[in-house]
Write a protein that binds this DNA or RNA. Structure first.
Length: 764
RNA sequence: GCGAAAGUGGCGGAACUGGUAUACGCGCUAGACUUAGGAUCUAGUCCCGAGAGAUCGGGUUGGGGGUUCGAGUCCCCCCUUUCGCACCA
């Protein structure tokens, strides 16, 4: 009668033991052979984690255990990105205070991590919603304010009507709120920004050195930063006695500029239309364009609409007077919000010129002494003559030509070379309660006054009403709002906007290194020892949000002399999503609560154990790819573990001596090699396959009595060691039952003998 | 449209640097044990052909060309899918 595989009892026993021995704790002053691993900083939402979430943590834990068995002092901390909207919404809907709700959720999530058998260094635990963390957000904000990186301005901003707050550009996806999907609207508001655009070039250049990052993420960040080289050129407007500045990446086509187009929101627009008989009609149209939702406005399908201002500008290259138009396809926030239209060399300008019957002029190359060839193929193209321009070969083929034109334009005093970015400054203020209070006050006499460091932290008041009414609940807390001016002592009002939670997550990897330091944000000495993070594991959804902000803040901290490094994350691994068939949509989709296609780890763990979930999650496919969850296939992992379990009691069946010892020995070494190399390159699925093969071979050897007891035991012990990172509970239990007193996690990773592999290969 | 990644059995996938394609698992088929099993175990399972049979012959990695003694892997063209960007001047 064999001992049944009682995964419940085994897992409870080892989870308890790991917790008691605090197996994961690392002394930060020691860094020999160190590896700093980081999972994403999870938000403790009220929803239970599902097996799709598990992939990130299970993968990280498998890697962590593997590293430890290989003698690395691996730091694997976990903490909570605890501020955010769901907590506040829960307060409105269920009448629970955001803090209580968050604290309760953290407890639930910790229990889930425990049930997965994940070893975190809980001695380093942090939660961004407590003053001992967020006071450093405030401290950092003040330093950024002093150095001009943080500033306040009135600007058209993205407003989510459902979340009732502004959003950063990065949080607007396809014109809708990243969190709730509600289309955002534009509002003019005075808001706090971080000058991330000043770091655009460094953020771009830094990417090239990040060899351990997926190319995909780097491309996404490059696109988001959107650097364009070109020139700004001034076009005089005699009627205004003031020029309009345009930005172009094709200054070499300036001769072909037959009209100008300004965004309807352009600051000069109202003056340009002053003399126009239809002034009011144009103003009304402008208002209409301004109110067009962002998605529609910047879509290629959106019909181009424009109005002739009636004003004229002078093309500096030809001396010709050209009309000035307003049109919806020119965006106010990019470049200078105005373009020179060169219809012959730009598809959008051509479409607009044809629609409005505006002239088109081809710019082409004239050799010295050559006359204008005209007689062009396209009837719409007028003649093009280049006079006084520097010689160039071919149009716009090459930065050299463009550079020559920029130099020429600069010589003539018409403009200058210019680099423009798509990236906007990071809007960090939010009109919500559950976030870090921005540490400034407004005094009637002194105006805006930063809170002195010794008055930090500015704590969030607990006693606040969550009614769901318009406006930030914080602004209705009199005890919070009413304060004294730090300068004159007179009455003052606190800033009630709070910070974007992405500020919190931009530097948490540093706080893990000094989690309890009450005197400073973090200890530079420890940071220098442990930074950068050797391995970061998380989903692709953070490609241009968190990962861009964290790189930015790291550079800011570097410039403040607080860290030695400029890039926080050396290697980044993006695990793919777990998908499953959804009854709602009839399609295979990302596993999520709203789609109703989740699998609860609780039930799975009850039925087949956490080790089964771990092994299946790692076996399901290459971890960087999306993978479809199969309820049936999970049992394969369970059967495998059950077979391994039963094998222990079959070991004594092996004979003292046997003929095929060498085969099993060779396979043992081959498996060590395969698993080691697989884990090194994150190929967990093939590592599992190799272990299944060894287990099958060992089972066959026991069945057919072809290997000796000693070899079988050796093979079994090796199997347990190699399997431990993937299925820690059952392997620890079997290891103990084999009679070893040392924890399997504390053993060192088995080594393989290449000569054995080679000799056998020749024999084959 | 631009950029990136990828296309291998009924399914998830393996083959790392060019060297026995389809490892491992799911599913399926047959059998064993069972009162019964969605439990467990054993055998089989890319396609075509020959053979009672172990086995033997041929073909196959989206399609078409090429390089090579040798190509799933390298090069060229085409097709398809997924992802990212997209009126950014």
């Amino acid at each position: 009668m064999s001992t049944p595989y009682d995964h419940k009892a085994i897992e409870a026993k080892w989870q308890d033991r790991w917790e008691k021995t605090r197996a994961a704790e690392v002394d930060l002053r020691q860094a020999h052979g160190k590896t700093y691993m980081l999972m994403m900083f999870p938000y403790p939402s009220g929803d239970r984690l599902h097996v799709g979430h598990g992939r990130n943590y299970i993968l990280g834990d498998a890697l962590y255990r593997f590293l430890r068995m290989n003698g690395k002092r691996a730091l694997n901390p976990m903490g909570w990105d605890a501020f955010g909207l769901p907590a506040e919404n829960a307060a409105i809907q269920r009448g629970v205070h955001p803090r209580d709700w968050t604290v309760a959720n953290i407890k639930v999530m910790k229990e889930q991590f425990r049930r997965w058998g994940i070893l975190y260094d809980w001695s380093k635990e942090i939660a961004s919603c407590f003053p001992d963390y967020y006071r450093w957000n405030q401290w950092l904000f003040l330093r950024m304010l002093e150095s001009g990186i943080a500033y306040k301005k009135m600007a058209p901003v993205n407003w989510c009507p459902s979340c009732r707050t502004v959003l950063a550009n990065e949080q607007v996806v396809d014109g809708a709120c990243e969190r709730c999907g509600t289309p955002v609207v534009q509002r003019d508001l005075e808001q706090w920004f971080f000058r991330i655009t000043d770091y655009a070039d460094r953020l771009l250049a830094g990417l090239d050195a990040l060899e351990g990052w997926p190319e995909k993420v780097k491309v996404m960040q490059r696109n988001w930063i959107g650097r364009s080289e070109g020139a700004e050129i001034r076009f005089e407007i005699p009627a205004l006695k003031e020029p309009v500045t345009v930005f172009t990446t094709r200054p070499d086509t300036v001769h072909g500029a037959t009209f100008l187009v300004l965004a309807p929101e352009h600051p000069l627009a109202s003056r340009l239309i002053e003399g126009n008989p239809d002034r009011e009609g144009i103003a009304a149209w402008t208002e209409q364009v301004r109110n067009t939702p962002r998605i529609q406005r910047s879509s290629e399908e959106n019909p181009k609409e424009g109005r002739d201002t009636g004003a004229l500008a002078v093309n500096p290259a030809t001396g010709e007077e050209i009309p000035v138009w307003l049109a919806n396809y020119v965006l106010p926030e990019y470049g200078s919000g105005a373009i020179m239209a060169v219809p012959a060399h730009d598809a959008r300008d051509l479409a607009f010129a044809r629609q409005e019957g505006l002239p088109v002029r081809l710019v082409y190359h004239l050799e010295e002494g050559e006359t204008d060839p005209s007689g062009l193929t396209e009837p719409i193209l007028h003649q093009g003559v280049i006079r006084g321009a520097p010689p160039f070969d071919g149009l716009a083929d090459g930065p050299e030509t463009i550079a020559r034109f920029i130099a020429w334009i600069e010589e003539n005093g018409w403009g200058r070379g210019k680099v423009v970015y798509r990236l906007r400054d990071w809007l960090i203020s939010r009109q919500r309660y559950w976030g870090t209070p921005i540490p400034v006050v407004y005094c009637e006499t002194d105006g805006m006054v930063p809170v002195p460091d010794d008055q930090l932290p500015i704590e969030l008041p607990y006693d606040v009403e969550f009614t769901g009414r318009e406006g930030n609940p914080l602004s209705r807390s009199r005890s919070f709002v009413e304060t004294a001016c730090p300068q004159c002592g007179g009455p003052a009002r606190r800033e009630t906007d709070t910070m974007d939670t992405f500020v919190d997550s931009s530097w948490y990897y540093l706080r893990f290194l000094s989690p309890r330091d009450a005197a400073r944000m973090f200890d530079r000495e420890i940071a220098d020892r442990w930074m950068p993070v050797d391995q970061y594991i998380g989903g692709i959804e953070h490609a241009i949000l968190h990962l861009l902000y964290a790189r930015f803040i790291c550079k800011v901290l570097h410039d403040f002399g607080m860290v030695g490094i400029e890039e926080p994350f050396q290697n980044l691994f993006n695990q793919g999503m777990i998908t499953r068939f959804s009854e709602k949509s009839g399609r295979v989709e990302k596993m999520s609560k709203s789609r109703g296609n989740t699998v609860s780890p609780d039930e799975l763990i009850d039925e087949m154990g956490a080790d089964t979930e771990r092994v299946y999650t790692l076996f399901i496919g290459p971890p960087e790819k999306d993978a479809e969850w199969s309820d049936e296939a999970v049992s394969g992992a369970y059967r495998f573990l059950t077979r391994v379990w039963r094998m222990l009691e079959r070991l004594p069946e092996a004979p003292p001596t046997a003929p095929a010892d060498a085969d099993l020995e060779r396979e043992r070494h081959a498996t060590i090699q395969r698993v080691t190399q697989s884990l090194q390159r994150f190929s967990f699925n093939t590592a599992v396959a190799a272990l299944m093969e060894l287990s099958n071979s060992l089972g066959r050897a026991l069945e057919e009595k072809t290997a000796s007891r000693l070899r079988c035991e050796e093979a079994f012990d090796t199997l347990l060691q190699l399997l431990h990172p993937l299925a820690p509970h059952v392997t620890e239990e079997l290891w103990e039952r084999r009679g070893y007193t040392e924890s399997l996690l504390e053993t060192s990773w088995p080594e393989y003998d290449e000569t054995k592999l080679r000799r056998e290969r020749i024999q084959l």
